[in-house]
Nucleic acid binder design. Sequence first.
DNA 1: AACTTCCTACGACATCGGTAGTAGAAGGGC
DNA 2: GCCCTTCTACTACCGATGTCGTAGGAAGTT
Lengths: 133, 133
Amino acid sequence: MAKKPIELGEAELAVMRALWDHGAQTVREVMNRLHERGKNVAYTTVLTFLTRLEQKGVVASDKRDQAYVYKARISRQSVTISRIRSLVDQLYDGAAAPMLAQLIENERFTPDEISQLRKLIDDLDPKHPSKGE
Amino acid sequence: MAKKPIELGEAELAVMRALWDHGAQTVREVMNRLHERGKNVAYTTVLTFLTRLEQKGVVASDKRDQAYVYKARISRQSVTISRIRSLVDQLYDGAAAPMLAQLIENERFTPDEISQLRKLIDDLDPKHPSKGE
DNA sequence: AACTTCCTACGACATCGGTAGTAGAAGGGC
DNA sequence: GCCCTTCTACTACCGATGTCGTAGGAAGTT
């Protein structure tokens, strides 16, 4: 069977972000990160999230001193990939290229991003090795 | 105020797809599309979705003969963009490039798709005009 | 020991999304 | 007129998510 796609809500994702951005933390620390970002959630709310996330298997906890320290067990990348994947499947029948084309045409990119993008594309194409330089 | 991002669930999106792929349809037709795709939902379920989608303002209905005909009021593109944007905002603080890198590295593209993508990029970049033509 | 502070466990509650049953209107057939 | 089919309107229900409050333990302060 395929690995069940782990569903993460928006607020749960914000918690994951705190862990990705600042490493393993206690409930209180995560709460502070969220507050810094303008999410004024209650301590117990954060605790609930972390608990649920642990049940989902995406974070792990470790008792240290008085409090548990939580750390992410999945990467930001894996979440990105799975989100994109499901979007592509749902809206473009799995064909990523048309979707990417949409993005390229509609997003505003800085010149810098554009060259990065080109490099990425070039790396896919053996005929255009963007090596050297 | 900013336009509130319209939230569409997975099943709602499947309904939108039916409308995008096959144009304006009645409840029954949409249901048939979904069945064709393996989603065996009840007629009333589809009706509920369409009703809710209309309340959300993303579809419009039009009484024709006996039944209402529903049509999409937002494009597949706009949904794509808004989804990706929220993903980018949530996971990469709005920086699209790193996310695109993820996307590009993990999807498979045909040579043909690759050149099309390159062309799109070249069109964005004044320094690399995708030559005359 | 009493007080204060912080931590976790549990329970609660609202909203939303997915799913569907029932009821009642509307039209076609005989 | 009566029946069958089809449509829409309502209502309901469950699980997931977002958000907390309360209770009770552990630990540091005096």
